[in-house]
Simulated scan of single mutants.
Amino acid sequence: MRLRIPLLSDPMIVMLLVATALAVVFPATGQWQGIAQDVSSAAIFLLFLVNGMRIARGEIAQGLANWRFFLPLFLWVFGMMPLIGLGLSGLADTVLPPLVALGFLYLGTLPSTVQSAASYTSLAGGNIALSVVGAALLNIAGVFVTAPLFAAFAGSEAADLGSDAIVRIGVMLVLPFAIGQAVQKGVRGCLNARKGAVAWLDRVVIGIAVYVAFSGAVEQGLGTRFGLGEWSALVALVCLFLALASGGAWLVGILLRQERRDRIAFLFGGAQKSVAIGAPLAAILFPVEAAGFVIAPLLLYHLLQLVIAAPLARRLSQG
């Protein structure tokens, strides 16, 4: 029996589409913009508190011990991928608005997904344990690495990581995660028993962050600044990014002489990008009127990575 995964059967895709549509039709402007930002900030704090509770400290230690797999994965995700993003950002700057072009660099500095990377690794017959622990480690690292890495590569005022941004990252991302790690012994079991509710928390928080970001972009004239040519260029460049990311990750696994199961885990862990980190972090790093433009490549990349992941995993499962 052939496995069919309709695009709209993925709740995250539905949430992103709904949030974007709401921002276009009913953008949060004026006093409602401030209220929406406060709600988004509180939701992001809650999300990272729960993330700290559910990621076992033992998994982190286990991942750090397997450095032959995770060190190359870390260097690929936070080394080569930002370089690819930087190159595509320069190319995009010739055909797209500057903030959207900057979004390719931002996309390159983000960590990989957790849930979908593990799911498609499993479907493809890859090493699930490596995939789960690797994606978790990359997401933890992304909280600390992505913002300064993006600022270092961007080298402009738009990417200036000032004291305000550092404090906000500490208060909204690092602090709740640390609190979650400290108290996880008493609550982790309860969270694991309610994985469905936790998954919906992820989706709702990301949806709120996307709604606030795109509300600002709509207010700044997103619809009038993007014509058919710009949309075509954006899609083409995102497809190119995904092809380079996937092909490069697979090639690295071959060059490292990884076993096939490990190479599959490296592929999905190295090529996919996390909107769960990207959308909330963008709400902290960028003004609300800029965030929607910057995350446009990320949202499209996330959509396309899910489009190709299922058929790619099925092909890999056949050997």
Rank of each mutant, 00 (worst) to 15 (best):
R257N: 14
A276N: 03
R194Y: 03
L110E: 00
G63T: 10
G34K: 10
R315A: 15
A23R: 00
L110V: 05
A265R: 02
V18L: 15
R4L: 14
L16V: 11
T109Q: 01
W231C: 14
F74G: 02
S112F: 00
F214C: 08
P72S: 08
S41V: 12
A243L: 15
S215W: 06
G223A: 15
A282H: 06
L73S: 07
F286W: 05
F214W: 10
G216V: 02
A101F: 05
Y211K: 09
Q62H: 13
V143A: 15
F293C: 01
A159H: 00
S41N: 14
N66S: 09
N139Q: 15
Q37L: 10
I169T: 08
M172N: 13
A56F: 06
F241M: 12
A101Q: 07
G34C: 11
Q37S: 10
D10T: 01
I254P: 00
F48C: 05
S9G: 14
G87I: 08
K185S: 14
A245Q: 05
S122E: 14
A19V: 09
S9Q: 14
G216L: 01
L8D: 05
I13L: 15
K273H: 06
L16K: 12
A290R: 12
R168K: 15
Q220S: 15
I166W: 12
I206Q: 13
L161F: 11
A19E: 09
V18W: 08
G108V: 02
R260K: 12
A65E: 12
F69T: 08
G216A: 10
L49D: 01
P27R: 11
G103R: 12
D38M: 14
V50W: 04
D164Q: 13
L267Y: 02
R2N: 13
L234F: 11
V210S: 07
A21K: 00
P97D: 13
C190I: 15
D262S: 15
A154L: 11
A213H: 03
A117G: 03
V275K: 05
S9M: 04
I60N: 08
F26P: 04
L83P: 04
L300I: 13
I295W: 05
S317P: 02
P11S: 10
Q31W: 07
L300W: 04
G319I: 09
